[in-house]
C-alpha cells in the first residue's frame, strides 16, 4: 500500500537523526575518553571501555553542535565574577547545563560509570 509505504519512510526518516546523530569528530571522542579515564584512576583498560561506551552513548543521543553548546554552558556557568553571572543568569544557559548533566548521567548509567 502506498500510504503504508509512505508512513514507513516517514517514520524511518524521523527515527534516524535522533537515534543515530553520531556526528562527533574523533578529537572530541578522544578528549572525552581521556578526561573520563583521568578522573578514574586505576584499571586503565576497564575505564577505556566504560568511557568510550559513554561518549558513544552521548553521540547517539545528541547532535555535535548541540553537545558543544550544552558543554559550553555547563562550563561557563562556573566562571567567576560578572561574566559568569551573565551566563548563569541567562535562563537558557542554566537549562542547557542541566540538560548536559542529565545526558551525561544517562550515558554513564548505560556504561557502568558512576
Amino acid at each position: 500500500m502506498m500510504v503504508k509505504r509512505l508512513l514507513c519512510a516517514a517514520l524511518a526518516a524521523f527515527a534516524l537523526p535522533a537515534a543515530h546523530a553520531n556526528d562527533f569528530p574523533t578529537v572530541d571522542r578522544v578528549e572525552f575518553v581521556e578526561a573520563c579515564m583521568r578522573d578514574r584512576q586505576g584499571m586503565r583498560q576497564e575505564f577505556l571501555y566504560k568511557c568510550a561506551c559513554a561518549i558513544d552513548a552521548l553521540a547517539a543521543e545528541v547532535k555535535y553542535d548541540e553537545y558543544v553548546e550544552l558543554l559550553t554552558a555547563a562550563r561557563a556557568i562556573t566562571i567567576a565574577g560578572e561574566r559568569g553571572a551573565v551566563v548563569r543568569e541567562a535562563a537558557d544557559a542554566q537549562a542547557m547545563a542541566k540538560r548536559f548533566r542529565a545526558l551525561e548521567d544517562k550515558a554513564k548509567k548505560q556504561c557502568f560509570l558512576d
Binding site: A35, D39, R75, A76, I77, T78, I79, A80
Partner: peptide
C-alpha cells in the same frame, strides 16, 4: 581557558 571547568579537582 575561560576560568570555569567541571574537572577542577585536577
Amino acid at each position: 581557558g575561560i576560568g570555569g571547568w567541571a574537572g577542577i579537582g585536577m
